[in-house]
């Protein structure tokens, strides 16, 4: 019989153009080190880490998606049932910022209304090559109701914060009742302790791509 050292599982997805550093952010967050030559992602990759929010242990189940348009048919099915979506652009490449609306549309259409969407401007260490100002991106985030941070997978700046702030928002939504754990595809699964293998959250639909 399985026992868990965490109370919740939150499902995250990381989305954004190719080369913005999605996999590097994930690697920095799960391994606490920078992978300088992070290879491109084909399809969908997966990582986990247990964090603590308000005294509760939470397992983050993070799906890292390929940035190339061609893989969207595959990656889109992984949006379903995400409690958190980290939408990443590269502060040194304006085109990756310009594509955010398209990523946001996908995220809104393919996740549930309560999914927390967090905007990350990655590569903030490359100040001299900056192509998108903080103010401009902050305004975009405010206009669209997103939380926003600039981060650097290389130095680690704001990486922890981005993942953990997202979890805090989700946890807050659970506590104030705006996120219904019994709703289909809430992206949150509660574990009882010591836990028999019974899920309090809804089972995802077959083939949803979500194991929550």
């Amino acid at each position: 019989m399985a026992s868990y050292n965490y109370s919740y599982i939150f499902k995250y997805i990381i989305i954004g153009d190719m080369g913005v550093g999605k996999s590097c952010l994930l690697h920095q967050f799960t391994e606490k080190k920078f992978l300088p030559d992070c290879p491109h992602t084909i399809g969908v990759e997966f990582g986990t880490r247990i964090i603590e929010v308000n005294g509760q242990k939470i397992k983050l189940q993070i799906w890292d998606t390929a940035g190339q348009e061609r893989f969207r048919a595959v990656t889109r099915s992984y949006y379903r049932g995400a409690a958190g979506a980290l939408m990443v652009y590269d502060v040194t490449r304006r085109s990756t910022y310009n594509h955010l609306s398209s990523w946001l549309t996908d995220a809104r259409n393919l996740t549930n209304p309560n999914t927390t969407i967090f905007l990350i401007g990655n590569k903030s260490d490359l100040e001299s090559q900056r192509d998108v100002t903080y103010e401009e991106a902050k305004k975009f985030a405010d206009d669209n109701g997103l939380t926003f941070l600039e981060a650097s997978a290389k130095t680690g700046a704001n990486v922890e914060e981005s993942f953990i702030e997202t979890a805090k928002t989700i946890f807050q939504n659970i506590q104030n009742g705006s996120l219904d754990l019994n709703a289909a595809e809430s992206g949150v699964q509660q574990k009882t302790q010591p836990a028999p293998a019974v899920d309090l959250g809804d089972k995802p639909a077959a083939n949803s791509g979500c194991g929550c």
């Binding site: 399985a2 969908v44 997966f46 986990t48 995802p204 791509g209 194991g211 929550c212």
Partner: peptide, 13 residues
């Protein structure tokens, strides 16, 4: 391992 989507995916990917 766990007989669960993400566990199996994480292992085999």
């Amino acid at each position: 391992g766990d007989c669960e989507f993400s566990a199996v995916y994480g292992l085999l990917s």
